Simulated scan of single mutants.
Amino acid sequence: MTDSFQYRALFLSDIHLGTRGCQAEMLLDFLREYDAEYIYLVGDIFDGWRLRKGWYWPQSHNDVVQKILRKGRKGSKIIYVPGNHDEVMRNYLGTHFGGIDVKEKDIYTALSGEKFLIIHGDQFDMVVMNAKWLAYLGDWAYETILKINTSVNRIKRLWGGQYWSLSRWAKHKVKSAVNFIGDYEAVLSSEAEKADVNGIICGHIHHPAMHDVNGIKYINTGDWVESCTAVIEHLDGTFELIEWSKVTRLRTEARSSKKMQLVAGGRQTKTV
């Protein structure tokens, strides 16, 4: 079956459909180019927390859902591992609908033979587990930052600028955030070791990563709010973390450069 696909596996998480911060158009562009035999939706695909407060579901969000379902109809095996924002889907664990299997977690065997634990990761976030009110407060603060970020990017686009994430920048600069990310990676890598697998693929903290932690392959798919990232397994068994916002930026720059060269070439021809 793999021969009919461009890639062996595709891993997506933290899309947060139903929020204004969701970069649905960018995700649609990505999905138009990437097909895989296995597609893992690693939690927070839609945001039930936000939708309960107010309905927001533009056509682009519906297009994302339809695009994923269409991939299932074309033969992709789709596994949905719910997260905390779409935790309502945990009421349907073990069910199959629309070509999608809903599971609490899964073990994925890569082409190399290595096994990966697939899990969203909120189960190991003490704030989410033990102080949900604080998680909701954090969600409100995060949404506020995203609103600021949306305004900044709207202004940047008017001047030909590219997508930039304020919250992602802050994660790299604020010491407590950096420490939390490090602790999170260590805890999840330890869980993978307990499961007797070679690695773990997760989401939840909106921080894409692919490296070894204490001998365990730690892969975080990132998100489609801040990072616009996904993970793919190529047909040769190698894994790649794709930052789609960077890909689109490089393509735009390449097109602009080519256009400038053509214009310059035309000027030179006229001069001669």
Score class of each variant (00 low, 15 high):
Arg8Glu: 13
Arg8Thr: 13
Ala9Gly: 15
Phe11Ser: 10
Phe11Ala: 12
Leu12Trp: 11
Ser13Gln: 13
Ser13Pro: 09
Ile15Cys: 01
Gly18Thr: 10
Thr19Ala: 04
Arg20Ala: 10
Gly21Ser: 04
Cys22Phe: 05
Cys22Ser: 06
Gln23Glu: 11
Ala24Phe: 14
Glu25Gly: 02
Met26Tyr: 00
Met26Asn: 02
Leu27His: 03
Leu28Ile: 07
Phe30His: 03
Glu33Tyr: 15
Asp35Thr: 01
Glu37Val: 06
Glu37Ile: 04
Tyr38Ala: 00
Tyr38Ile: 04
Ile39Asn: 03
Tyr40Trp: 15
Leu41Asp: 02
Leu41Gly: 01
Leu41Gln: 07
Val42Asp: 15
Gly43Thr: 07
Ile45Arg: 01
Ile45Gln: 01
Ile45Cys: 02
Phe46Arg: 08
Gly48Thr: 03
Trp49His: 10
Arg50Val: 01
Arg52Trp: 00
Gly54Asp: 03
Gly54Trp: 07
Gly54Pro: 03
Gln59Val: 09
Ser60Asp: 05
His61Gly: 05
His61Thr: 09
Asn62Trp: 11
Asn62Gly: 12
Asp63Lys: 13
Asp63Arg: 13
Asp63Val: 10
Val65Phe: 11
Val65Asp: 08
Gln66Tyr: 07
Lys67His: 04
Ile68Ala: 13
Ile68Glu: 07
Leu69Asn: 03
Arg70Met: 13
Arg70Lys: 15
Arg70Cys: 14
Arg70Leu: 15
Arg73Phe: 11
Arg73Glu: 09
Arg73Tyr: 08
Lys74Asn: 01
Lys74Glu: 04
Gly75Ile: 06
Ser76His: 09
Lys77Met: 08
Lys77Arg: 09
Ile78Gln: 09
Tyr80Phe: 06
Gly83Trp: 03
Gly83Tyr: 00
Gly83Arg: 00
Gly83Met: 00
His85Gln: 15
His85Val: 13
Glu87Asp: 14
Val88Pro: 02
Val88Asn: 09
Val88Leu: 05
Arg90Pro: 02
Arg90Asp: 05
Tyr92Thr: 01
Leu93Cys: 10
Gly94Ile: 09
Gly94Leu: 09
Thr95Val: 12
Thr95Glu: 14
Thr95Phe: 15
His96Met: 07
His96Asp: 09
Phe97Lys: 14
Gly98Lys: 05
Gly98Thr: 02
Gly98Asn: 03
Gly99His: 08
Gly99Ile: 07
Gly99Asp: 12
Val102Cys: 07
Val102Asn: 03
Val102Trp: 09
Lys105Ala: 15
Lys105His: 11
Ala110Glu: 14
Ser112Met: 14
Glu114Val: 06
Phe116Thr: 00
Phe116Val: 02
Leu117Lys: 03
Ile118Tyr: 03
Ile118Lys: 07
His120Ser: 04
Gly121Cys: 06
Gly121Lys: 07
Gly121Arg: 05
Asp122Gln: 06
Gln123Cys: 03
Gln123Thr: 10
Phe124Met: 12
Met126Gln: 08
Val127Leu: 11
Val127Trp: 10
Val127Gly: 05
Val127Phe: 10
Val128Lys: 12
Val128Trp: 01
Val128Leu: 02
Met129Arg: 14
Met129Val: 15
Asn130Gln: 12
Ala131Gln: 13
Leu134Ile: 10
Leu134His: 09
Ala135Asp: 12
Ala135Ile: 10
Tyr136Ala: 04
Tyr136Pro: 00
Tyr136Cys: 02
Gly138His: 07
Gly138Arg: 12
Gly138Ala: 06
Asp139Val: 12
Asp139Tyr: 14
Asp139Cys: 06
Trp140Lys: 14
Glu143Arg: 15
Glu143Trp: 12
